[in-house]
Amino acid sequence: MNGFSTGEEDSRGAADQICCLVDEGERCSRPAGNASYSKKIQKTVTQRRLKLNLDNMARHIYICDYHKQVIQCARSKQQQQQRRRKDSEEDSGETDNDLPEVDLFQLQVGTLRRYKRHFKVSTRPGLNKAQLADTLMKHFKTIQVVEKEALSFFFYTVKTNANKLDQKNGLSSEAT
């Protein structure tokens, strides 16, 4: 090409284009937006068995905002189902899914080993950090905590500038 536009499609703006999808056998007549029908989106449509196809007569791959929303909703539902499936595979004993997730992988290996030793969690020898964090996360989710007691103890510790580890080592808050 010499860099000049020769096609009718090239001279039109995006506002003049209509959606390139065929929805349940009928070509969509909504105006196309700036979202394109990529391979990733095509994969989502296939996996979710949406009745959407690319019109072979379309000279572009832009889809309307309506279909963009439909595909995004299908994708988010798929991700939620995958998360639920993953959670159900783990027998964690957790009853409330609204609890915040704690990422034990962010801790140092020494801290993870200290946690393992403190709670006497049995694992096979030679685990790497990721495997150890995963095993300890399963244990962590099974721990029952009395929230009122834990908060009261936390406030007391902060107010008295005390630390349970300092008391265990024979140090008092006056020594620090």
Rank of each mutant, 00 (worst) to 15 (best):
Gln78Pro: 00
Gly126Gln: 04
Phe119Lys: 02
Ala35Trp: 01
Tyr115His: 05
Leu50Tyr: 05
Asn34Ser: 13
Val121Leu: 05
Gln106Ile: 07
Arg85Tyr: 01
Leu21Lys: 14
Gln80Arg: 14
His118Pro: 00
Ser76Trp: 12
Lys51Pro: 03
Ala74Gly: 06
Leu21Asn: 07
Arg114Pro: 00
Arg117Asp: 03
Leu112Trp: 03
Thr123Phe: 12
Glu90Ile: 11
Asp65Gly: 05
Leu107Cys: 11
Lys129Ala: 09
Cys19His: 02
Asp55Thr: 15
Ser76Asp: 14
Leu54Cys: 08
Cys19Tyr: 01
Ser29Arg: 12
Leu99Asp: 00
Arg27Phe: 02
Asp23Ser: 13
Gly33Cys: 09
Val109Trp: 07
Asn56Cys: 09
Asp65Ala: 09
Arg84Glu: 04
His118Asn: 01
Phe105Ala: 13
Leu50Asp: 07
Arg124Gly: 04
Phe119Ala: 00
Glu90Lys: 12
Asp55Gly: 11
Val45Asn: 08
Arg49Gln: 10
Phe119Gly: 02
Val109Lys: 14
Glu89Pro: 02
Asp16Val: 08
Gly25Met: 08
Ile63Pro: 10
Tyr62Lys: 12
Gln106Arg: 14
Phe105Trp: 03
Met57Ile: 12
Tyr62Ser: 14
Lys129Trp: 01
Gln69Val: 13
Ser92Ala: 03
Pro31Glu: 07
Phe119Asn: 06
Arg124Gln: 05
Ala32Gly: 05
Thr44His: 04
Gln81Val: 03
Val22Ile: 15
Tyr37Gly: 04
Ser38Ile: 07
Val22Asp: 01
Arg49Asn: 09
Ala35Met: 10
Ser36Asn: 13
Arg113His: 04
Ala15Asn: 06
Asn34Thr: 13
Val22Gln: 00
Ser38Glu: 13
Gln69Cys: 13
Glu24Arg: 15
Thr111Ile: 04
Glu26Lys: 15
Thr44Asp: 10
Glu89Val: 04
